[in-house]
Amino acid sequence: MSDYKLSHLQELEAESIYIIREAASEFENPVMLFSIGKDSCVMTHLAEKAFYPGKVPFPLMHIDSKWKFKEMIEFRDKYAKEHGWKLIVESNMEAFKAGVGPFTHGSKVHTDLMKTQALLHGLEKYKFDAAFGGARRDEEKSRAKERIFSFRDKFQQWDPKNQRPELWDIYNTRVHKGESVRVFPLSNWTELDIWQYIRLEKIPIVPLYFAKERPVVEIDGNLIMPDDDRLPEEYRDKIQMRKVRFRTLGCWPLTGAVESEADTIEKIVEEMMTTTKSERTTRVIDFDQDSSMEQKKREGYF
């Protein structure tokens, strides 16, 4: 019997494939959210596995806040093209034209308008009844309690105190018109699992994850890499070259780089095992207020 042993990664992979197929079978119009981060790349890879040799039966959607790193956008377009995904890109153009950005409006307003509102608008526009997200439960405290199939009401809001019981692998996918479900196939993966899987499966990821000499400027204790000419005047003469990498990817003014020599996955894992900071500390938005992620999630953020 012991021949039939699976490693934890094989077991996690099987669980994720089951979740993805289940959602694809039971919802009329699902979409996979693509943040272009490493978790997103693992999720799309698992979706490709789930439907092999067929094509993935739902599109990818990227919410472009208009402040993403250029390398991310290049990677996104190349990835979608090479892997045959239908790609939808949505932005809050109204807010963009009004000049909303993290430097002028602060991270809270920017995140709400350019990410949360753009996402809600995108889901509404295409009438998606299910949206896959790459969130993991080990990332953050409020995520640790979220269901794999997480119900959203007509206003896309999450009610942590009123979640549907979720047992075994029998997922309740029933919703009324206008309601939807966020599906998290990577719920049980940890950061180490993700890296390990990227290494084993040779999954392509954005080069920003690997250490390289890059121009950065220190803003409120974060190492920010100015990616276009929207860096405020006062910082422009403070830019310096440092060998850095990014542990998470997002809007460039809101994503701190870390000084690092890790230019391979092995070195990244080694750094991770000996480092003393968890990955979300490089995300500026989590520090707006205590329990801020829970607040954002209640409002519809992923």
Binding site: D138, E140, K145, P160, S291, E294
Partner: peptide
């Protein structure tokens, strides 16, 4: 993790740890 239960000082739901 969740705000409400932090205030009450009790765990109110299933939380997963790794």
């Amino acid at each position: 993790g969740l705000k409400a239960e932090r205030e009450q000082g009790i765990t109110i739901d299933v939380a997963y740890r790794y």
